[in-house]
């Protein structure tokens, strides 16, 4: 179970990306996070595993208070949170198998990962997951030899290889064509149901969100403006979320999106710099 309580995020530039965001995701529930681009969806999802550091508030996964963990503890918490990215974010020059196995990096010591000598159970699990997402035959191919849909399946397998207790999914279909998008969404929902995983799917396509998720949270300018079941999502609510023609808000949002990305990069840099 994931509990987010009064989460706030203010960037160094003073832009307020999230304001008092609170919600709870019970086991097995798939939540669609919708909102205009830059409403803070990206920031919210990255605040949960602290790729972006929240300013205040609490994030609690089962019994762990994530927002107050030390670096080492955060690593252990992160390995229980699977993340799937918009542009797949596979390591292009590694094989599909290595990409899936990289989901175990939080569990194995460095020498094992360096020599690619992962424990047998991890390898069997990776094969099972590749079979599950229909890529058994591609295990030894390099990731950059796959199509977009196939790459996203590898991304899903990598996240599941982590034995996650929560899935964070950032725009899984943004780089895919409509048909593949549907297939990927169906796969995600099925997989979450199989092991009753809670998931937050950040998605801009309202129709897809309504079709595949159990619950929808609408964000607008960093605030939760809707939280309910997909069929409660009426025209009026959508207007409230996306605005009539509030272009200025949209543009400010885009800037915030870039900000979220930049901050995430800075965080990664900081991490690396602790070497």
């Amino acid at each position: 179970m994931l509990t987010v309580d009064k989460l706030n995020k203010t960037y160094k530039t003073g832009d307020k990306a999230l304001t008092d965001v609170s919600f709870t995701v019970p086991k097995g529930q798939v939540v669609g996070l919708i909102g205009p681009s830059g409403a803070g969806k990206s920031t919210l999802i990255r605040c949960i595993n602290r790729l972006v550091e929240p300013t205040s508030g609490s994030v609690r996964l089962n019994d762990t208070e994530i927002s107050r963990l030390s670096v080492g503890e955060l690593r252990r918490a992160r390995r229980r949170i699977g993340m799937i990215f918009q542009e797949y974010a596979l390591v292009e020059r590694l094989t599909v198998m290595e990409n899936v196995l990289s989901g175990r990096l939080g569990y194995v010591p460095f020498w094992r990962s360096f020599l690619r000598k992962f424990p047998g159970d991890d390898i069997a699990k990776a094969y099972r997951l590749l079979d599950r997402v229909g890529l058994m035959a591609h295990a030894d191919k390099r990731a950059d030899a796959l199509s977009g849909g196939q790459r996203q399946r590898v991304g899903i397998a990598r996240a599941l290889e982590q034995d996650p207790e929560l899935m964070l999914i950032d725009e899984p279909t943004a780089s895919l064509d409509p048909k593949t998008s549907r297939q990927i969404m169906r796969l995600l929902v099925e997989i979450c149901a199989e092991s009753s995983l809670p998931a937050i799917i950040n998605i801009h396509d309202v129709v897809l969100a309504q079709q595949f998720t159990d619950r929808i949270i609408g964000l607008q300018a960093g605030q939760v403006v809707f939280d309910g079941s997909p069929n409660e999502l009426t025209e009026a609510v959508l207007t409230q979320i996306y605005g009539e023609e509030d272009w200025t808000a949209m543009r400010r949002g885009a800037a915030e999106d870039a900000e979220a990305e930049a901050e995430a990069h800075r965080e990664t840099e900081k991490l690396m710099s602790a070497l």
Binding site: V91, E98, L105, F110, S113
Partner: peptide, 23 residues
């Protein structure tokens, strides 16, 4: 190097050395 790949490896809970090695 592409930051998104490094970010993805970081998100799996990898250590610094592993991020270098894989990302």
């Amino acid at each position: 190097t592409e930051v998104s790949q490094v970010e993805a490896i970081t998100a799996t809970g990898a250590s610094q050395a592993q991020i270098l090695n894989y990302g």
